[in-house]
Design a binder for these strands. Sequence first.
DNA 1: TCAATGTATTCTGTATACAACACACTATGG
DNA 2: CCATAGTGTGTTGTATACAGAATACATTGA
Lengths: 218, 218
Amino acid sequence: MAIERKNLRSQVRSELLERMRTGLAKPGEGINEVQLAAELGVSRTPLREALIALESEGQITSENGKGFRFVPLSAGEFEDLAPVMAALESLALELSPIDELKMVGARLVELADAFSDELVEHKLVISRDDEWHAVMLSVCPNKRLLDVIESVRGSFHRYESLLVAEDVKVERVAAEHAAIARALAAGDVPAAAEALRTNWMQGMRRILDNASTAYFTA
Amino acid sequence: MAIERKNLRSQVRSELLERMRTGLAKPGEGINEVQLAAELGVSRTPLREALIALESEGQITSENGKGFRFVPLSAGEFEDLAPVMAALESLALELSPIDELKMVGARLVELADAFSDELVEHKLVISRDDEWHAVMLSVCPNKRLLDVIESVRGSFHRYESLLVAEDVKVERVAAEHAAIARALAAGDVPAAAEALRTNWMQGMRRILDNASTAYFTA
DNA sequence: TCAATGTATTCTGTATACAACACACTATGG
DNA sequence: CCATAGTGTGTTGTATACAGAATACATTGA
């Protein structure tokens, strides 16, 4: 068995992301380093390192003498993220070898079909969703692009997890995914890209419509 | 006058980027923290913080017990970056208000024309290039997208600066920029996006063709 | 009462200290 | 002679210490 040897800062980073997702860390909230460090059972050093990493991923902000703060949620920023994700994933499709894409498309159809059968809690939906997109991107050879996608998706997920209620319109998503998958299986990349775009934009719209406005600052 | 108050880690970050650009920091080279910190006249703390920030921007890598190292240059990664930049900037154009875009197009035509008049050293070309793209993106309302663009451009520039010789084919670049600008001034966004794409891909190709292969690891 | 200025306290930004790990070298056994 | 265990040195990862800035509070004057 491979024992995992991870440094504290990556663990702290994960924990912070988790807290942002579960809402334990409230958007816009200032961060007291000594207090948070004590809470996590580590010193300020790895905490600060994790904060800095998250900052350059766009998940946290800092002002010079004033320390770090969780970025406040804004509907505007969330709306901004969706088209970026769509464009990036579309590009990933364009750059993937067409024949491999077709094969992946077949698998994606299965996965999408499996979706609609069940009505599960939101958390599971997201992880399934992730899995689905991971499969779709698995044949893209552009590693740098995948890095960027993952980074942006991190920010997107933050909103998704915070704003979505438990059991909302799971079927619609499945239908959209199925559309993408069928286009891919048929080798029609432009159609798939278009479907992907609507998937992201609709998904964003659904979430915003269902969101309690409590979280938003503006 | 506004006095600039910057913390060490951001200054260190800039300095490291500068060294990567000028080649003072060699690609693939391991980083000795105490030595580098002493060289910069700071302690390890802000240095490490800068390194971590650069790492999550993809400009530096780290392995757990082994510290940081400047990422080695690979032609493959450079080729990967160009289409990403093209897609992102194209998206930025699509998202910009069309009327403002036309006005900006007019200014860009002027700037592009100014380009071809002079034959200057490469460093200047890059800064002009940057300025030009900044103007082009100035009317894009999607702030998150601009963040992503800046991050990716950082990586792209690193290659550009390291690989390009002094005085190479400046006119061609100006011509491509002029094409983009004219399309924008005419309000033809798809054409501009297409021209933008060729600009990035050609630019990448030019650089790779002229590059001494010395830098590349693979 | 309220504004303004001085003071105290809290927190960040940076430096230093320390412990554990990684790698190189040596020595020892086969 | 080779392999391997032992030992030592250098470097990273983390903790702590310290200085200066930012904020809150109090005090003084109108």
